[in-house]
Write a protein that binds this DNA or RNA. Structure first.
Lengths: 340, 340
DNA sequence: CATGATTTGGAAATCGTTTTCTCGAAGAAA
DNA sequence: TTTCTTCGAGAAAACGATTTCCAAATCATG
């Protein structure tokens, strides 16, 4: 009802000084005489005063708030990144506004508008849907950092992982284990990320003198079910497959499931390689996968963003690429035949 | 540099009216003549005007922002809830500030202060650490909703799941499959949630005429590794165990892993029941588990919170309990011996 | 002791909205 | 036509901080 939060005025009255003095003592390290400092601090303590960040922002033009736009929080890939970003904002003493788009460009746009209205100091886009939305933020003079595509937005810092390399090393690994007919289950190839991984996969095959065969590739979305059916379709088409590279651990779980149901042994009959290293410790057998440094991705995105916010001066735009790492586990042991 | 966002003044000038008129036309459904409405709307469109939410909040005393305090975003349990909460805030046209505590009470306190400063309209606590922090929010007249413990904060809406029932049904299920020596791996029993689940487990045993044996219980934190070692310790102590109830899917994965490594067959030798239904579709064998309606938890928390924010009038505090559901999968089939 | 330099702390403007409050004009009723 | 009501639109006062700007007080220096 008649609830009134404590304001700087109340503190001033309590300490017997003016509001401006209170503000200065609270914000400037070396303002005021020891005596007034003490009085003000005591008043603050006594009244349990907390600055009204809204009022402050209105005059300083800083909200100390970062916006994060991300497809969802359900897929471990995203929740790990979100967690890393959140930890980083905390370390920088900032707030984090989170928006998930559920892969809907209109929702993405709504969040962009919301963040503009909120006067966020900066925005991180993870797997942005529409580059236009990023430009919209930049047009409002709000710094933005892009994590993992799109990579063709001008004048923007971009953080990512070398997907070509990732696709290549996992495929090379499968080949090195004596496999020859390597299938590929991958997300929609319209995406940059997916295209790169496919290219890496193909490069590894060609390097080994094997011609990539479109018949060996199955497309699916990022669900367990689609991994299951993709594996099914692929094996119906090509029963001679002896290894499969699945472009995401979630889908790999679906593929493993199908193989398990059909009594096909992993890795004896078919070797399975995943991607992301998110679920690979939960599966049986443990999944060989390509680990992406998701936490680093989040940390770096924040670091670059904060740099851009604080150092107003023109700083060259950065494009940071991390190198993914192969983690070998049980699902891709050497083939029995090549052992004999 | 000389970047100036478009303000209500600019719109007013463009439309040839006063700022107050612009504000009223934008906010009150039926203000102004059709002619002025048109002029103002055109100006807004032309200048791509977006309200400054900061300035608005200062006068309206609403920020349209909700705070969420949650242990982390890494455990699927939390990320699913966070996702549900985020979706709900979006549906209500609100913003979401997210704070993860990493189970550190000091961090929780920092976030409470931050949310107070941010003038959040309301706060949702998931698995809060220190009740004092919740009281601190309420003392600032900010509505709070507690999800899953602590349940003893006065004058607060509380949303939760019936953990006693959950522990009971999974144990009953194990017993109904012919198991007799049912072990328990559970999180730190200081927690209310854990205590309730233990009580449910014990109730089921007693009901079946079995005396609960402390030796059959192992405590661990919420990691795969601790599930692994807990299973190990338990079996060393009591090799006669023929079923195990693990209080969290993540730890169940660790337990399954140990059994797999030791060549102990699930469910033939030991039946395994999990809790949460988060990873249970990823495991081999598929994990029987107790499903919690995490998305509902998030939705309801938001619904109750928004109610409390909008209807200022004194509304009785609610305590909502959902009933968890048993999901039977492969890891708890009927025992072989009882079949013969 | 006088002068200049520095420090201290207050008055007032400002940030961009929303919200009274008020006045004049238009419309309705008599 | 007159009077009463309603409605449209602007002026000005908030909201709660920060930030000039300035006067007074303090200090150092010759």
């Amino acid at each position: 009802m008649g609830f009134k939060p404590v304001t700087v005025k109340d503190v001033a009255r309590e300490a017997g000084v003016s509001p401006s003095t209170v503000s200065k003592i609270l914000n400037q390290k070396d303002f005021g005489s020891p005596e007034t400092r003490r009085r003000v601090m005591e008043a603050v303590e006594k009244l349990d005063y907390r600055v009204n960040a809204i009022a402050r922002s209105l005059v300083t033009n800083y909200t100390d708030t970062i916006g994060l736009i991300i497809p969802d929080l359900f897929n471990p890939v995203f929740s790990i990144v979100a967690h890393a970003v959140e930890k980083a904002t905390r370390a920088y003493g900032l707030r984090l506004l989170v928006g998930t788009t559920d892969r809907n460009a209109q929702v993405e746009r709504d969040y962009v508008n919301l963040f503009v209205e909120s006067k966020a100091d900066g925005v991180i886009f993870y797997a942005a849907l529409n580059p236009e939305n990023i430009l919209r933020i930049k047009r409002q003079n709000i710094p933005a950092v892009i994590v993992e595509r799109p990579s063709h937005v001008p004048d923007t810092d971009i953080i990512g992982v070398d997907n070509h390399h990732g696709g290549k090393i996992i495929t090379e690994h499968l080949l090195s284990q004596g496999r020859r007919v390597v299938g590929l289950i991958v997300g929609p190839p319209e995406g940059e990320v997916e295209r790169e991984r496919i290219a890496g996969y193909q490069a590894a095959l060609i390097q080994a003198g094997i011609k990539p065969d479109p018949e060996l590739m199955a497309v699916c979305d990022y669900t367990i079910e689609s991994g299951f059916t993709a594996m099914e379709n692929l094996l119906e088409r090509r029963p001679d497959i002896d290894a499969i590279f699945v472009g995401c651990d979630i889908m790999a779980v679906g593929a493993l499931r199908y193989l398990h149901v059909k009594g096909i042994k992993v890795p004896d009959d078919i070797a399975v390689g995943g991607y992301d290293n998110t679920l690979s410790q939960y599966t049986t057998p443990l999944l060989t996968t390509v680990a992406q440094p998701f936490d680093l991705l989040g940390e770096e995105a924040m670091r670059v963003l904060v740099d851009r916010i604080r150092k107003k001066r023109r700083m060259p735009y950065q494009q940071i690429r991390f190198t993914p790492e192969l983690i070998v586990r049980e699902s891709t042991a050497v083939m029995e035949k090549s052992l004999s």
